[in-house]
Every structure is written in C-alpha cells, then in structure tokens.
Nucleic acid binder design. Sequence first.
DNA 1: GTGGTCTAGACCACC
DNA 2: GTGGTCTAGACCACT
Lengths: 123, 123, 123, 123
Amino acid sequence: MILIDMRSSKPLYEQIKESIRSQMVHGALRPGDKLPSVRELAQSAAINPNTIQKAYRDLEAEGLIYTVPGKGCFVAETSANAKENRKQELLKAIRPLWTELRYLGVADEELVRHMKGGKNDDD
Amino acid sequence: MILIDMRSSKPLYEQIKESIRSQMVHGALRPGDKLPSVRELAQSAAINPNTIQKAYRDLEAEGLIYTVPGKGCFVAETSANAKENRKQELLKAIRPLWTELRYLGVADEELVRHMKGGKNDDD
Amino acid sequence: MILIDMRSSKPLYEQIKESIRSQMVHGALRPGDKLPSVRELAQSAAINPNTIQKAYRDLEAEGLIYTVPGKGCFVAETSANAKENRKQELLKAIRPLWTELRYLGVADEELVRHMKGGKNDDD
Amino acid sequence: MILIDMRSSKPLYEQIKESIRSQMVHGALRPGDKLPSVRELAQSAAINPNTIQKAYRDLEAEGLIYTVPGKGCFVAETSANAKENRKQELLKAIRPLWTELRYLGVADEELVRHMKGGKNDDD
DNA sequence: GTGGTCTAGACCACC
DNA sequence: GTGGTCTAGACCACT
C-alpha cells in the first residue's frame, strides 16, 4: 500500500519511490516479490500512470527492481554494492543536519534518545 | 563570503539562505551584524539582486534577520522560538534517514561514532 | 473576482492578499477551493504573474493556502494557529486607533454603535 | 520625548509624526506649546535633521502645527474641522479590522473588554 | 546609498 | 496546463 501526500512539495514520483524503498527496507517487499502493475497502482492511488512509470523506471536504474516485459516489475536482490552506496548517501545527507543540531545545543545522546521514540513523519 | 554551486539542483536562493544560516550557526555572523547589501552581494556572487532579495525576505519571514529599508539587513537576536522551530525541522528531516540507516545495519553507536569525525560535505 | 486599485499606495500584492483573505473570511472561498491560476489571475487583472505569485507565496507562508506544483493553489483548512496569529495581529493594529478615538471624545459605546452600521470601505 | 523603533518597517518620519500626534492627543503637548527645534530633536534622537523636517512639514500641512520662521514650530489650536477629519479617518481605518475580527469569532463586547486593558504597542 | 515593488520574458519540473 | 526559479532592468521611498 502506498500513501501519497498531495500537498507535499515533494514530487509524486519521489514519494512513490520512497514508499517502495521503505517497504523493501522494512521487509514488506522482499527480493523476487512482484510489484503492483503500473495501471493497478495508478488506479488504486488515483495517480497518473505516467507518474508511476517514472518511479519504476528510476528504481530500475538504481538497480532496486527489474522489469520483465509482459510480466511486471520485481524486487531485485539487494547487492552489497547498492546497499553500501545507499548507506554512504544517507551518511552524507545526515551529517550537516546533525552538525547544525549540535550548534543548536542538542547533545548527541539526546538526539539518539529522541530517535528511539516517536513515529516516522516524512516531509 | 558566500559560495554558490551553479550546478546544484538546489535553488540559488536556498543556497544563499543555507550559507547565511550556516554562518550564523558557526558564529561568523552575530546578532546585530549587518549583512552585505542586496546589490553588493549580487555583484560579488554574480547573481541577480532579485534572487538575493528573495533569500533575505525568506530569512526575515523566519525571524532570523530583520531589515531596515534604506539602511540594510541585520542579523536578528535568535529568538528561542525560531531556534525551536529550526530544531523541530531538523529532527523531522533526520528521522527517516536514521531509520533507513538502522535497517541497513548501522547501529546507533556506530552512527554517533561516525558523526564525530569526517568533514561536512553539503549537498 | 479581485479588484485592484492602481492608484493606491498599497502594493499590488498586498491588495491581492487582502482581497483573497477577505473572500475567505466572507465564505466566498472555502477550504479546498482552488484559487485562480497565477497566469489566469494575472491576465484577468492585467497584472504581472510574478506579482500574483508573490501574493500567493505570502499567503502560503501564513498558512492560509497551500500549493501543489503543477496543479494549482488551494485554500487551506484554517488552522487554529493561523487564526490566532491573525487575531493578535488585528488586535495589535486596532488598539492605537481606538486609543486615539477615545481621546478625540468617542465613547466606547458610540464606537460600537457606529461599527454596527455603515458599509465597509477598504483603504 | 520621542521613541523611535529603528527596526520598524514604518518610515522614521511617520513614527515621529505619530509620536507628536500622540503627545498632542494625550495632552503632553498643548496648543501654543513650542516643539523641539529640528536640530535639537535630530541630535537627541540621533536622526537625520532632514527626516525631522519632513515630519514637521507634514504636520504643518495637516494643520496640526504652525511654523514661525526664526522662532520655531508650535502646536496649533485643534480646529473642530481637523478633529472631525481625523475622527473620520480613524473610523474608516478601524472598520475593516473590526469586521474581520467579528468573522474570526470575536464578539463586540470581548473586543471592548480587550481594549480596556493592555499596553499600547504601536506598529 | 539602501531595500521594496513591479514588469517582461525566459526556462524548468511536474502532471 | 500548472507553479517555481531566475534574469534584466525600471522606478520609488527612505536615509
């Protein structure tokens, strides 16, 4: 299931990508699983099929899913390579935020503690 | 001094805002300090004055600077309010990244350790 | 419909903002309603699109409308927060005027009575 | 004594005019009283004499003060005419604010009650 | 000199 | 089609 926030400034296809990535990360989608078809997902989420297409295309370019023409899209084996790339990307993104929080007087332990509770609000 | 990356996908005025915010956070800009004039900064950074003004206008709306027409723009006292807003914003942004890192197998302590070293690559 | 007074000293974008705020307050614009597109309104009011966009942008910053890129601008749910802010703003603006009226010999009841009739001339 | 807020968006000469008008209204300045000289006021308030000049010139045009060349500026008799003009001006300005407050759910009595307390923050 | 407003017109991303 | 960004250049009010 994919939750979309129409009022977010984040592009729809980015929200879709993140939603799928998130499901893969949490284990709701496992290697070999079939993703919903473009038309199916488009209808259930009331989104233009072109937008879904773009999300799937991007994910395939990242190596996270693969397409079998006439069959559908499937979750790819997560290569150690892709995992490491993603990890570096996240670390790079998290550092400046962390730095500014420190300057705002948030101690590392407080931050860690804060991260252990609360729900995961995206954008 | 403000460094602009013309190749970044991030809007110019966002880069300007971040650059100024960063200088305020690191103490290079202190409450009461005068910011470079719109025209001056525009010329030195080879950017259209309107773009600078948009950045300044945004920062004023956030309560980080104040503007005296005919005089210039000045760094505001950092109100507890603005600080708290910014902190919440940062926490909200950092949480999903952290969550995904956990699922990628990065323990909290490892992350903290990682954050204590390394340089601060933006964007 | 938006009425603009080109001869007023008030900035165009302020007039636009007030006009929209007024329509929201009187119920002509309700939460979820779509505002005229930037280009459309610009043409119908013979105003530069940038000026309209500035007005919309301000209103969004105030939390009165929200914008979906590629779709349009929509009236937001009036958050209690935004309402309270506006109320404080109005009270702050009304107080000095009231005070001066008192000193000019206008009793509170007379003022109240006066406010119950008469048409609402802006600016 | 004149209090100036350098950070206000209101022009200095407007603040000066209001300050003087306020003192006249409160009785601190009475018909025939001599106003501080341009130079004197400029120095004591650390303001450019030109700005004071403009404020005095405006007030004279409104009939609130009169100038005796070589002598100074003096508070004029408040003609019933000027008083009535000012009153109408204030009423016209106060009405739209009041109307919007009503729509925000502020009852007339609540407003009156609110106006009986609190200090008089300008701008 | 300063910032504030406005116009005109361009290009982009997204839907 | 939509809004978002950016440039270029003009005029104004204020100091």
